[in-house]
Amino acid sequence: MIHNLLARYAESLFWMARYMERAENLARILGVHEFQGTTARGQRDWYSIVRLNADEQRFATRYPVTTAQNVVNFYLSDGNNPTSIISAVRMARDNARTMRPWISTEMWSQINVFHNRMLALTAEDVRLPNLVRTCAAIKEACQTHTGITEGTFYQDEGWYHYRIGKLIERADQTTRLLDIHYHAVVRDDGAAGHYDVVRWHAVLRSAAGYHAFRRVYPRGMGAAQVAAFMLFNESFPRSVAVCVAQINGMLARLKSHYLLRGGNGAMEKVDEIQATLARPVERVLDDGLHSYLDWLQCRFADVTSELGRDFFGHGPPATSP
């Protein structure tokens, strides 16, 4: 078998996909959050994003006051914050630039233009009243990327790495979205109330899952149902179960199509995740949703480092051809 894909290219494709997916998910979180930012409680909600990304320190050094607008600036247009949307787009673009020999011209051009548009964002664009519109435009640019990729990207071994990167990031972001809101509900109220329904609405709308959720659960909207939908549903494209099943399939096909010896470590980690996806959701909640989400995020990181070792050339240097 002749391998043409450089290890470095596989890694760049993987991260290009991840950063674009990350930008989309951040735009989803910020875009839907907006309507809650007007109350004191809303201000706290904004800060929960900072906490869940473990960005407290970095945020504090850059912004003396915690306001909704500062949090939005920090995550949307602050190029010095590596976890901002603009940083994600820049990294996606840097990887795309490296990958120009491999990706389609249309993919490159769209990311390049998107990046230029992000650089041209004004203070007015990121002001709270305009946030929904700006986030919608960012989300659409990411979806345009997805569509162009689907329609133009040659489906060889590089494409598998791209897909795996995208799916890992999506699953990871779903756990984070759930965590942000679940955290707030549990801490503030303990018991379910009207406000929680508003919050679960926000989660589902962020993930574009509200109507599908209604079809699956016509009655009620509680933590258990939302968590089950976001984690275990087998048809919702942003659920952890769907993403992980696809990662599993991609890895298996990548290995068999291209006769690759590596990849077993990543597949074992994926198996480990899949084994937890059949549990009753009540048990997951009893054991603590946050700690389960945390565990999932660690496993996604494990899959990434396994891929790094086997495919991206991070392992001990090969000593013979």
């Binding site: 391998h3 470095r8 020999p101 291209y258 010896r261 590596g262 090969a318």
Partner: peptide
């Protein structure tokens, strides 16, 4: 053809290889 950088290439027994996802390729 692949666009490589110096770090993608490695020499063994005076032969040149590139680091791919499937190992070294001549």
């Amino acid at each position: 053809v692949p666009l490589v950088e110096g770090r993608d290439l490695v020499i063994h027994d005076d032969r040149v290889y590139m680091r791919t996802i499937g190992g070294l390729a001549r």
